[in-house]
Simulated assay, not measured.
Amino acid sequence: MVYKFRVILDTEEDIFRDIAILDEDTLEDLHNAIVNAFGFDGLEIASFYTCDDEWTQDEEIPLFDTGDTPGEQKTMADYILGSTLDEENNKIIYVYDFLNMWTFFVELAAIEEPEAGIAYPDLLFSHGEMPANAPDMAFGADGAEDDLYGEFDDDYDEEDLDMFDDDYNVGGREFDDQNWN
C-alpha cells in the first residue's frame, strides 16, 4: 500500500508538501523524503513525536540512538510506517534541526494502491516557498508568563535601598555580611 502524507511547516504561511511512500518503509525513510521535499541538506538531527488528534506531543522517536545503552532505544529505522500509522493514528510531529527547530505537522491523508511505474517515495505536490530561517516558536503559556513578571516588580530606587543596611534580620535571626558566602 502507498501512504500519502501532507507535511505542513508550522508557520503562518501555507507551506506544505504532499509525499507518497510505501507502507513497508520506515520513519527514517519518511524523514529522508521530508528532508528532500523541503530542500534541507540532511546533516542535522531530527525526531518524530507521536501525538493525539489535537497535535499534543507525546513519545519521541529519534533519528539516532541517544540512550545510555547502545541498541536499547528504538530509532526511526525501527518503526515501519504500516505498523506505526493508520486511519485512526494518522498524525505525527516532525522536528528537524534542534538548534533552529523546524517543526512540521505530518498527517496521513490517504492509503491507496501503488501505481505502476512510480518510484516511491514520491513528491506529489509542493506549495509555498521555504523561508530562509525557521519560524520563531513561542514556547510557554501563550503570553501568560508576561503577566507573572509584573508580579515581582518593585518600585525601589536608590534612596529606598538605604533602608537596607549591612545587617539583616530574618525570622528573628540576625545575619550580617560576614555570614554570607
Score class of each variant (00 low, 15 high):
residue 74 K to E: 12
residue 140 G to W: 05
residue 114 P to L: 09
residue 135 P to G: 07
residue 144 A to R: 12
residue 93 I to S: 02
residue 57 Q to W: 13
residue 61 I to F: 04
residue 44 E to Y: 14
residue 153 D to W: 13
residue 138 A to S: 11
residue 55 W to F: 14
residue 100 N to C: 08
residue 112 E to S: 14
residue 91 K to V: 00
residue 72 E to N: 07
residue 59 E to M: 14
residue 167 D to F: 10
residue 112 E to G: 05
residue 37 A to R: 05
residue 3 Y to R: 01
residue 47 S to R: 09
residue 59 E to W: 12
residue 139 F to C: 08
residue 169 N to C: 10
residue 96 Y to V: 01
residue 98 F to P: 04
residue 141 A to C: 11
residue 47 S to V: 03
residue 36 N to E: 15
residue 174 E to R: 12
residue 167 D to T: 11
residue 152 F to H: 04
residue 18 D to A: 03
residue 96 Y to L: 06
residue 157 D to K: 02
residue 1 M to P: 14
residue 120 Y to M: 00
residue 179 N to H: 15
residue 169 N to I: 15
residue 45 I to W: 09
residue 164 F to G: 00
residue 151 E to Q: 13
residue 9 L to Y: 05
residue 76 M to I: 00
residue 179 N to P: 06
residue 78 D to P: 05
residue 76 M to N: 03
residue 1 M to Q: 11
residue 78 D to K: 04
residue 163 M to T: 10
residue 69 T to Q: 09
residue 176 D to F: 05
residue 109 A to E: 15
residue 170 V to E: 10
residue 99 L to P: 03
residue 94 Y to W: 10
residue 147 D to C: 07
residue 72 E to K: 14
residue 116 A to P: 03
residue 40 F to E: 05
residue 173 R to Y: 09
residue 159 E to I: 03
residue 138 A to N: 13
residue 92 I to L: 01
residue 123 L to H: 07
residue 140 G to V: 02
residue 23 D to L: 01
residue 156 Y to E: 14
residue 30 L to G: 02
residue 79 Y to P: 02
residue 53 D to M: 11
residue 73 Q to P: 03
residue 92 I to N: 05
residue 100 N to Y: 09
residue 91 K to C: 08
residue 67 G to S: 15
residue 18 D to Y: 07
residue 120 Y to Q: 02
residue 135 P to H: 06
residue 96 Y to K: 00
residue 171 G to S: 05
residue 9 L to G: 03
residue 16 F to W: 11
residue 124 L to C: 09
residue 17 R to A: 03
residue 23 D to R: 06
residue 12 E to P: 02
residue 96 Y to R: 08
residue 7 V to T: 00
residue 12 E to W: 09
residue 131 P to K: 10
residue 129 E to G: 15
residue 113 E to R: 13
residue 103 T to C: 11
residue 64 F to G: 01
residue 49 Y to A: 00
residue 147 D to K: 10
residue 179 N to K: 11
residue 107 E to N: 09
residue 20 A to M: 05
residue 126 S to P: 03
residue 121 P to C: 03
residue 33 A to W: 08
residue 88 E to L: 06
residue 159 E to C: 07
residue 140 G to M: 04
residue 179 N to E: 14
residue 88 E to W: 00
residue 140 G to L: 08
residue 28 E to P: 08
residue 123 L to N: 09
residue 14 D to Y: 12
residue 14 D to L: 13
residue 20 A to L: 00
residue 5 F to R: 02
